[in-house]
């Protein structure tokens, strides 16, 4: 076993320890699903009350940037899965490259998001009612934009955390402290990263493609 692969004394063996780590991450992901799920339920509730305003408000968002970011995040999910596969297969250099690409994609996502929000602010779109020059002030528009910034912001925060963790694991892969036999840290962070991807898969049509 490589560095960091010590079996803690409360586990029988390495496989049990790895399983516990994985299960722990799944429990955390369950609470994350509830966190975002509650926001999505709030969104569904208000969309059912203000369907037309939500559709009009959604038109003001940049569908091109939203779509581009969806492709970016889905590809990053693929590259982290590939990185884990390559590490297990003993291709360390390639695994590190896949993880570096994943981090680059995460940073790209955040940059696009920042650019998009800067454009929104310039147009007078803020959380809440927005500026007096806001393009849409009908009742319900404030709800849509508040949810847009809240869900997008909370998701962006998760992307930041994920990018940091993946950069750390990329460095550990390069250093050789993750080995084909010991991939648990990368496995659980990859799980987290895939959930961040899944959340965006739902946010994308709900925020950008309302009809």
């Amino acid at each position: 076993m490589g560095i960091g692969a010590r079996v803690e004394e409360h586990f029988q063996d390495f496989a049990q320890q790895a399983h516990a780590a994985r299960l722990g991450m799944w429990l955390f992901l369950a609470t994350e699903s509830l966190l975002f799920g509650v926001l999505l339920i709030g969104y569904a509730f208000y969309r059912s009350l203000f369907p037309a305003v939500f559709a009009l408000a959604s038109r003001r968002l940049d569908i091109t940037l939203g779509t581009a970011n969806t492709f970016v995040l889905i590809t990053s999910s693929f590259t982290v899965a590939l990185g884990l596969h390559l590490l297990r297969a003993g291709r360390r250099a390639l695994a590190a490259a896949a993880l570096s690409i994943t981090v680059a994609l995460a940073v790209t996502f955040l940059l696009v998001k920042g650019f998009e929000w800067a454009n929104d602010f310039r147009e007078g779109i803020y959380p809440g009612t927005g500026s007096p020059q806001a393009p849409l002030t009908a009742p319900g528009a404030a709800l849509f934009y508040t949810l847009y910034f809240l869900m997008g912001g909370l998701h962006g925060l998760h992307v930041m955390v994920g990018a940091g963790l993946l950069a750390w694991l990329d460095a550990r892969t390069i250093r050789g402290s993750l080995t084909p036999e010991y991939t648990t840290p990368l496995e659980v962070v990859a799980l987290y990263w895939h959930l961040v991807d899944i959340i965006w898969i739902f946010l994308y049509p709900l925020l950008y493609l309302v009809t």
Binding site: I74, A81, A190, L191, H194, D197, I201, Y204
Partner: peptide, 13 residues
């Protein structure tokens, strides 16, 4: 969206 999420959960996760 559900199909995509299921694909990610089943195979990537």
């Amino acid at each position: 969206a559900l199909t995509k999420a299921t694909l990610v959960a089943l195979f990537f996760m």
